[in-house]
């Protein structure tokens, strides 16, 4: 007879629980009225790298409806909005992780403090990659990101700030997991498809936040840290993964179709060579400067 699998679980809604073993994660609906409902109580017991990874993946996946394959945004108009978002979500990360590291250290939680200190270093400079990409596309990047803040990026930045300043900042691990795990879903083919739609190399920031970048190993590191946490801590991380994913997937935070990103970013375009070629024939070069 096979050994009973190790199980981790977390409640993600009043009637829904994510249950994980080393083989995967499942969405279990609690059975009202069943006194033998196995997953109504908070998780207890230790984690393992395999089950904790699936617990966090399940908490993430349970936040979204089933979607089709990931579709790469096409063209400058679509990509400029993505880059502005990438700038805003990466810019505060090192500073926020410095706060988290300090607070974990003050509480004597050295493994968590060590992880946060590594993030201060690992995530440093990623915002500049987004700025370089925007500059390459012909924008005054600093002015552009100073003027435009996508709603979803604003919500995410506020979320990370709230996590690191909460009485227990451990939710920042869940926030990091959700973003880095989803970044790892961006394959080489996805990056190539974005790049192929652009007139210049403007995927520096994306490459770092893709399966080709460092986020895959960061996810592995994070799983190892979380698996060593207590059951209540792992629950808190998984709940934060789920909450972060809800924000990432929230349709109410989608940007309006009009005005397009291209129209909103237009005042910050420089008259670069390729941009000038792109302008309609009756538009004088430089007329679109902000």
């Amino acid at each position: 007879m096979a050994a009973a699998p190790h199980v981790e679980w977390v409640s993600v809604a009043p009637d829904r629980v994510v249950v994980a073993t080393s083989a995967g994660a499942w969405h279990h609906r609690l059975r009202p009225g069943d006194p033998w409902e196995a997953f109504a109580e908070p998780m207890t017991g230790p984690g393992t790298p395999e089950t904790t990874r699936n617990l966090l993946d399940g908490a993430l996946a349970s936040a979204g409806r089933r979607s089709g394959p990931l579709v790469a945004p096409q063209g400058v108009d679509a990509w400029v909005g993505r880059l502005i978002s990438l700038y805003h979500t990466t810019h505060p990360t090192p500073g926020q992780m410095r706060v988290a590291a300090s607070r974990f250290a003050a509480a004597g939680r050295e493994p968590l403090a060590s992880w946060a200190r590594e993030k201060v270093v690992d995530e440093h400079g990623h915002d500049r990659l987004a700025l370089r990409d925007l500059e390459a596309l012909g924008y005054d990047a600093a002015a552009l990101v100073g003027a435009l803040l996508p709603r979803r990026a604003a919500a995410l930045v506020a979320m990370l700030d709230a996590y690191v300043r909460a009485p227990d900042p451990i939710g920042c691990l869940g926030y990091a997991y959700a973003l880095e795990r989803l970044a790892a879903e961006r394959t080489e083919a996805y990056v190539s498809a974005v790049q192929a739609s652009l007139p210049v190399d403007a995927t520096r920031c994306l490459r770092v936040h893709s399966a080709a970048g460092s986020d895959v190993s960061h996810v592995d590191d994070l799983v190892a840290v979380v698996a060593g946490c207590s059951a209540p801590e792992r629950v808190a991380v998984a709940v934060a993964v789920h909450a972060t994913a809800l924000t990432l997937f929230d349709p109410s935070l989608c940007e309006p179709v009009a005005p397009s990103w291209a129209a909103r970013a237009l005042p910050y375009r420089r008259a670069t060579a390729f941009m000038t070629r792109d302008l309609p024939p009756d538009t004088p070069a430089g007329a679109d400067h902000g």
């Binding site: 994510v18 249950v19 995967g24 994660a25 499942w26 969405h27 279990h28 609906r29 059975r31 069943d34 033998w36 409902e37 196995a38 993946d57 399940g58 993430l60 996946a61 349970s62 936040a63 979204g64 409806r65 089933r66 979607s67 089709g68 394959p69 990931l70 579709v71 993505r82 978002s85 990438l86 979500t89 990466t90 990360t93 993030k119 995530e123 990623h126 987004a130 996508p150 979803r152 990026a153 926030y175 990091a176 959700a178 973003l179 880095e180 795990r181 989803l182 970044a183 879903e185 961006r186 920031c205 994306l206 936040h209 986020d215 960061h218 994913a245 990432l248 997937f249 989608c254 940007e255």
Partner: peptide
């Protein structure tokens, strides 16, 4: 008598990644 609940739906990250209109950057 113990009642086995029905087998639940499995969860996969790659099945929901297309829900966001942003590329995640931590």
């Amino acid at each position: 008598t113990l009642v086995l609940p029905p087998a639940p739906d499995s969860l996969k990250v790659d099945g929901v990644a297309g829900n966001a209109d942003a590329d995640p950057g931590f």
